[in-house]
Computed example of a mutant assay.
Amino acid sequence: MNPVLPPTAVVFDLDGTLLDSRGDIVAALNHALLTTGRNPQPAQVIVRLVGDGPRALCARAAKIPEDAPETDELIRLFLDYYREHPLDFTRWAKGALETIEALSAMENMSLGICTNKHRATTDVVLRALGIEDRFGAVVAGGDTKERKPDAAPLLLAAKQLGSMPAAVVMVGDGIQDILCARNAGTWAVGVESGFSTAEALIQAGPDVTVRDLSMLPGIVQRWREPTTRIKLR
């Protein structure tokens, strides 16, 4: 069932949605691979593996099971390097800062983050950017037993923001973001300028997709008007 409540909260994915972080993710992962005697992977290969947390990322890149003992060492090396180099290459996604400002200016609107990114690296990136206080809720990898596309992380973010799930807009560039929104009963916006293809996002069934975040405030405002709803895809 699609949400019917006017939005009172917008929750963002982080990597590929608010941030173009592919450069730092690639550098950290290739450091872990090289340190353990493995071959580095091309950036375009690594980017396709991003979205399900560091364990899945490291295991997929090394072509080993997630529960293999070697995976733990790869994760440690990946996270240690990332914490030391959080913003070497990371940039804001197009329209991200302007969108945060526009949404923050809306009456009765809260902002949050729901990411599968590890809690330690999420915190260091947000601190380095100086924006940790802009969000009323930040739910990161490990904060709940399950990760996106399970509903639990997004439901926790909604609870922390004081919003009913049906009044929350989940914004993300990954299939797991859209499926998480569907599982949680929230609005779902797919961002085509991120790591996933537009075709994959549309197939996941969002309420709408946007070319980039600059289109988001207008959509949210229209959803807040009782006589207007964007036609669902």
Rank of each mutant, 00 (worst) to 15 (best):
D150E: 12
R127G: 10
E199D: 15
S110P: 03
D80M: 04
L213W: 04
M109V: 03
R222M: 13
I113S: 07
Q160M: 14
T71L: 04
V169C: 03
A166F: 07
A102R: 07
C180W: 04
L57S: 02
G95E: 05
A157C: 09
V11D: 08
L5K: 11
P226Q: 01
R76S: 12
L87C: 12
E70W: 06
R229E: 09
L156H: 08
K117R: 08
L179G: 03
L216S: 13
F195A: 02
A27Y: 10
N116M: 11
T36G: 02
C114I: 07
R147V: 03
L156R: 12
D52Y: 11
S104W: 07
L216R: 10
A93N: 13
F78R: 01
N116Q: 11
W92P: 15
I113K: 05
A140D: 00
D72S: 13
P65H: 02
R229I: 01
T17P: 14
K159Q: 15
D24A: 02
G23W: 06
D212R: 03
F195M: 03
A200D: 15
S21Q: 01
G16A: 06
R55A: 05
P65L: 00
P217F: 05
E84D: 15
G174M: 11
G174F: 06
T99Q: 06
N2F: 12
R83Q: 15
W223A: 08
D133A: 09
W187V: 00
L126T: 05
L74T: 11
I113V: 15
P206V: 00
V4C: 14
K231E: 15
G218Q: 13
D67P: 09
E199R: 15
T227Y: 09
C58E: 00
N30P: 15
I75M: 15
S104M: 08
R91M: 14
A137Y: 05
A61Q: 08
R76G: 12
V11S: 07
P149L: 01
D173W: 07
S163D: 04
K117N: 05
K159S: 14
